[in-house]
Design a protein around this nucleic acid. Structure first.
Lengths: 242, 242
DNA sequence: ACGGTACGTGTACGCTGTACACCCGTCAAG
DNA sequence: CTTGACGGGTGTACAGCGTACACGTACCGT
């Protein structure tokens, strides 16, 4: 369609759409994803809400574009090492990007169709495996096993415990503190094993990505466990084909 | 507070709240989570929307109650086996429950505070590990590594590929089919490794839980990879403390 | 008989996404 | 130079959402 009209524009949605997306990402970074509405976004762009619909089909597409814009920030893959260290470094790169946009992981988890940046990233991760010697079906299994971890975050089993009340007014109230401590004690007796595990963990609060406790050391722990498993599987596959 | 008033009621929210929650779960099962609003839910209960607020604080609490109600369906833990087979069976039980309520996994992924059923389930899973000989800190790491897999689902790296157009009107249109095939070919050339991996996979469409391709065999593959890793870690921990 | 308590009702408000009609600047073709 | 299509911003309007607030009403222990 309209193939006759060919003088300059080689692609549609040439420039303006990316501006909208970038503004949306910055807005979400600043005020949180929940505060990103067509109206607030339009306001930050100095434009009327309906103007956005000339660049994105609807809000869902806007959100999809936002996650893809974030994914596009992931640096390219290193090429001068083996699959193990390359994949590990790449995923930790992805994690850094996700940490920079705390809303992105939760949003990505809800998306149903990957954008071009996402596909490109996945393609390069898969390429690292296959050129590293993984047969296609094993690569497929391995990608599924990685799951959300390819994106640098891990969907946690149990989300963040009730945050210790950052509200200073409440924090100053000793009665509220006592009530909170009592609540804690009750929880500990009702769920003793959870309490024991929680006590065994001192989380680094700066490493949170998305909702849930998921600090850097734990992420790398799980990642390395998987990568080691993959290495074993690769070795098995090789001896079986010998 | 109100500790003097103690004659019959040992707990608040005695009966009616669970009816609301159950109706919400059934409604979501029938028409999908997106169609569950305070108004539609009230309509199915033959009641005015505001009546619900006598039983749940707000919609967020309603959603939390819904996921907890689903989690409560997970059968109790087997007690007559070792940690490995017990955990494996339990998680597959959880998966069955999640498969029965396709909206639940996505909703659970967005929750920030676990309900009592969730805590109880996690407590029992943790108990299986610790009584199986896992030291507390290792149990903690292991739980994090399991991540969403304790709930029987895996947040996938790349969500479901564009569903092959179930719409019969479109399916009958040969032009649309051709266009779709062309789109597919373009994707395959743009992302060759993704295409290769996708071709290596023939997914069982009946095993989907949540959004994304995640069939039973792949889930068990990843789960077993992790459980095997845990077994090795446990052995290491034992030899180190010897 | 009475007062509190638990529950359902009705109205109303502000917010959301977005359909539809309109208007204006730019630019290629007549 | 005129013209007309077209990309992009505008203004109005609507249905649906969560929910605050005030009001009924039926029960139940005193």
């Amino acid at each position: 369609m309209s193939a006759v009209n060919s003088h300059t524009a080689p692609e549609r949605t040439p420039l303006r759409r990316t501006a909208v997306l970038q503004a949306a990402v910055e807005l979400a970074d600043r005020v949180g994803l929940a505060e990103v509405s067509m109206r607030t976004l339009a306001r930050t762009l100095g434009v009327v809400p309906m103007a956005l619909y000339k660049h994105v089909a609807n809000k869902d597409e806007l959100l999809g574009g936002m996650v893809d814009a974030v994914i596009a920030e992931i640096p390219p893959a290193p090429t001068d090492t083996d699959w193990h260290t390359a994949t590990r470094a790449r995923i930790l790169d992805a994690r850094r990007v996700m940490l920079a946009h705390p809303w992105a992981s939760a949003l990505l988890a809800t998306r149903s169709q990957p954008g071009p940046a996402a596909l490109g990233y996945l393609d390069s991760v898969i390429a690292t495996f296959t050129t590293g010697g993984f047969p296609p079906t094993l690569t497929h299994q391995v990608m599924h096993t990685l799951g959300s971890r390819v994106w640098g975050f891990n969907l946690e089993a149990f989300p963040s415990p009730p945050p210790p009340s950052l509200d200073p007014a409440e924090a100053a109230d000793p009665a509220a503190l006592a009530a909170q401590a009592e609540m804690f004690r009750q929880l500990a007796t009702a769920y003793p094993h959870v309490a024991q595990i929680a006590a065994a963990a001192r989380h680094d609060p700066t490493g949170i990505v998305g909702p849930g406790c998921d600090d850097q050391a734990e992420f790398e722990f799980g990642l390395d466990l998987l990568l080691d498993g993959f290495r074993r599987l690769l070795a098995d596959a090789r001896t079986h084909t010998d």
